[in-house]
Design a binder for these strands. Structure first.
Lengths: 198, 198
DNA sequence: GAAAAATACGAACGATCGTGCTTATTGTCA
DNA sequence: TGACAATAAGCACGATCGTTCGTATTTTTC
């Protein structure tokens, strides 16, 4: 690998850590350079602008997310087991990826939900792909007969997103230890309501 | 009312609009002064620091929230009707309060979930009171016999938060028109599962 | 209406912002 | 190893950041 690429990765690594702690708006060239142990101009040369840096960081986060959530879930058999794995990985992915201070993607989602531009588009794209992948996994569970054939998949995905977001809120902001149990309980109820009639 | 107080309110009004559009981190003295139509120093004099301004803005948002969500809900009979009103108002409160670009409280929650300080504490305090008020409304619904006596109220509140957060995500970031219907469907299912056995 | 108090402004501060340049250092390949 | 390309640093820029201070203006009070 080129030297340039690996420092670029190191920079984005630092950027994700920073974004996890204090949001994407806190991604300034100066503070990031200090964290990465290099000069402002040296860091800046890897990206044409701050905005491109932010977009690259979003892409990096999306890659990490896929690695931590989707890849390991593929080792579980399709259907409900894989769906469960997806859910569990989704809950724990920030911690498992060394981003213990919150999901950077969620931070970007809130900060850029109404600011058009490449960063906004990157975030929307990530969540669109995420929703689609989840929907696909639910579809497989229906095909396998693990879930009802007449299930409203879009509604199922909506409910799932709600559980995860509530979990992050209760866990990260409110520091409620009960969050994990609550999320699992909610998931169990969701699956139960979507199960085939006996 | 003092002249000072009313300009202070006007400033905080502008601050909420700004925070709704681009988050609390974007609340700079300069841009806010321009939006409020006064000088930086003149604006600054109303608050000892930027942090105090942010805390005051959180307080203002909390007040607006209570006005838009809780006060009108009290006009509905206690129990399920009031709970429904709370839910509906919660979904629509930003639009109804002129903060059409997103919930400033949610922005603050994500931006300050891991940054200790007065702003963090203010946000946590708001959500703690919010949870408690919702829990009280659920409790009343149980007392009225509208919901099961053995209902896990904490879990119910968790689920409700999830629905609202998923709604804001789908509505504001993803611009899905289906978000409202999805949220209402999820709420109906939540209430149904919590209803007394027939 | 005059005196006192509250409020707003203008200018300036050191620091940091994002972003260009130019120069040195380093890595890569013939 | 030498030549060339890639990468990092140094420095400087205009702008803006939060904040302070002295002064002008307005509001309140007597």
């Amino acid at each position: 690998m080129n030297k340039g690429e690996q420092t670029r990765i190191a920079i984005l690594e630092a950027a994700l850590a920073q974004a996890s702690e204090a949001g994407f708006e806190s991604l300034t060239i100066g503070s990031l350079a200090e964290r990465a142990g290099m000069s402002k101009s040296g860091l800046f040369a890897h990206f044409g602008s701050r905005e491109e840096l932010q977009v690259a960081a979003i892409g990096m986060a999306a890659g990490r997310f896929a690695e931590a959530v989707f890849v390991p879930a593929l080792h579980h058999p399709r259907g409900l087991p894989r769906l469960r794995a997806l859910f569990d990985n989704w809950l724990e992915w920030t911690v498992r990826s060394g981003l213990a201070h919150g999901c950077p993607m969620q931070a970007a989602a809130v900060e850029f939900d109404d600011r058009p531009g490449p960063v906004h588009d990157a975030v929307v794209g990530h969540y669109a792909r995420l929703e689609q992948s989840i929907a696909r996994a639910v579809e497989l569970a229906v095909d396998e007969g693990h879930l009802r054939a007449d299930l409203d998949i879009g509604q199922f995905v909506f409910d799932l997103i709600g559980i995860v977001f509530a979990y992050y809120h209760q866990n990260r902001l409110m520091h409620r230890d009960s969050a994990t149990l609550r999320a699992r309980t909610a998931f169990a109820r969701l699956v139960d309501a979507a199960s085939p009639a006996p």
